[in-house]
Nucleic acid binder design. Sequence first.
DNA 1: CACCGGGATGGAAACGTTTCCATTGACAAC
DNA 2: GTTGTCAATGGAAACGTTTCCATCCCGGTG
Lengths: 357, 357
Amino acid sequence: MRRRRGADGKSTIKDVARAAKVAVGTVSRVVNAHPSVDPATRQRVERVIARLGYEPNAIAQSMRTRVTRTVGFVVPDISNPNWAWILGAASRILQPRGYTVVVASTGGERALELDVLGVFARRRPDALILALDSGDDGVLARALRQLRMPIVMMERELPGPWDAVMTDHAGGAYTATRHLLGLGHRRIALITASERVRPGAQRVQGYTRAFADEQLPVEPDLLRCGSFDPDFAFRETSSLLSRRDPPTAIVAGGIQLLAGVLRAAGLHGAAIPSALSVVSCGDTDLAQLASPPVTVARWDVKAIGVAAAEAVLRRLRGAASAAPARVVLESELVVRESCAPPCARRPGRCQARIQSP
Amino acid sequence: MRRRRGADGKSTIKDVARAAKVAVGTVSRVVNAHPSVDPATRQRVERVIARLGYEPNAIAQSMRTRVTRTVGFVVPDISNPNWAWILGAASRILQPRGYTVVVASTGGERALELDVLGVFARRRPDALILALDSGDDGVLARALRQLRMPIVMMERELPGPWDAVMTDHAGGAYTATRHLLGLGHRRIALITASERVRPGAQRVQGYTRAFADEQLPVEPDLLRCGSFDPDFAFRETSSLLSRRDPPTAIVAGGIQLLAGVLRAAGLHGAAIPSALSVVSCGDTDLAQLASPPVTVARWDVKAIGVAAAEAVLRRLRGAASAAPARVVLESELVVRESCAPPCARRPGRCQARIQSP
DNA sequence: CACCGGGATGGAAACGTTTCCATTGACAAC
DNA sequence: GTTGTCAATGGAAACGTTTCCATCCCGGTG
């Protein structure tokens, strides 16, 4: 074997330079398509590169240029289809531009969030896309500022000079609640994430506003804020349906929650929509294919990922110090067959049912 | 401002050394918990580190140590819940061990797969976890070998010295098909991925074996191999149900395919299970909550991610040159209510229906 | 008292690039 | 023929670490 190699068996720019009888600087210029290199030299170097299977070491490049062509993506749980869709959409934009996406999950726990920020402080990605759960006491904001890189927040608002892309979840919950109020429901439950995170807070706000519009009081026990876990929705639905005066309608305030609601409703024998009306925030196969199909407040999930990736790219090509941008995506109500006027008599015994054609 | 900083505003090991009046080597020893450093010195250095908010530059560390503490994760589509679950499971193991996961999607396209391998040749992760779609003509295998890093294949088999973790999809399809054959079905369709990828090929094989066991012939037109896209399942189901002699049962050979099958069946007015029996490979909320609930061949999706991550860790701590390991996870049939004996008369007009209690 | 062993530390090389600066020719303009 | 310009190239510094080697000093031992 006549070619030298690094310890890991890959040839370096020096090996190429030696074999092509040029200086390393020249090889670098060839690799980076610098204009001032003689065509003959270029060809000779390129041949050697091909022969040796030389690949520039991105680590060394980053070391020198202080650019990693890497974007960090931080969410509570990457298994969650919501975040997976967003990641997919973002990476579909970033990857063709030469950026590589580095993921990290936080489980929504503050300690892990800080850990992850530490990791990214050391790894130096060019930008960060994140959805943080723990509220801000200043520590988080300081850590973010220390990062000194473009940051885009998803579905969250934190005071600071950061771009943000989010959905109008308040609007979604508002429309959903109005829809139910319009049908005559009064005991409407809302199951959603903790009020500490924006989607939860926003949905409570939309729900409350809908009641306020009708001058109706909100019953606090019908507000079940906790998590986006379907099991949470299952437990809360069970608990709600066990009340002496169970709600006549439930708003499932999160993409994954509908499954829990449906499971519990099935177990309690609450027929939909005759005994219980259901609206889901977030459209899914399940909502479309359940029987009856479920009315939803839907929005374009992937658009969050697209907008986040575009915001990152905008910052990365120059607009580093522009004022923080804020994108809010709308939510739209899709009426299907899971809602009906409330049953006048004891809920659960009501048999009137709206049948689809 | 009296502390020097790098161009990106972060302090370096030199800044710390200067401020603590020690050599950079000593700071390095403090950071890496090297035993031979005087407690007093250590404390002094640590104080300076805290004061300056110094974070070691991972790029420089990697440059020097040739270790990135990074694992590449390559799949056809990271939006796909299947891969998202696997990624989540893997990262839940890797992240606490200090490894960061770098993702890339290939769209199942060969050109992109080669691109992605090129990216990882340059970025030098410590290991790779991947699901490649394009068959091997030797080019791919050579590219992988050139990478000179531990590689774990998911749900794929490629000849070479690589660990592999996969599911016994043949077994799943076999059990599903036997279940339907046992109920008396003969015209059973299988919709699944292209035979070029392992899960598709395996399911065809399991299906075929089930027919062979009963000495029954397989009708080729009932085998619809193409993709894991629900729209594909929708089109194929529509096409199948439009036949003069439509199948009396369908096996949906992929986690995402059930939605397409159900949608098409609904549109064609094919009642389940009276007119059409359905089995899905892969359990989901939809399968559990559809009415009727769908019989499935299920396996532990996350286990693939866990096994892959563990295989990576095993290689990374020493067992670099052990013989390639091969893990096969079993599949199990869960009988629900989507299957019934086939209707004797013209399918689609059959009204007999098995009702669950 | 000379010597030795060893812990603590400083100094410098090396990792693989990019980029600045200097040098060399070639060629045009005077 | 001298001078100036410009393209092509070589050489070396620098990026921020880790780690090897040498040095220093301390205390114990013979």
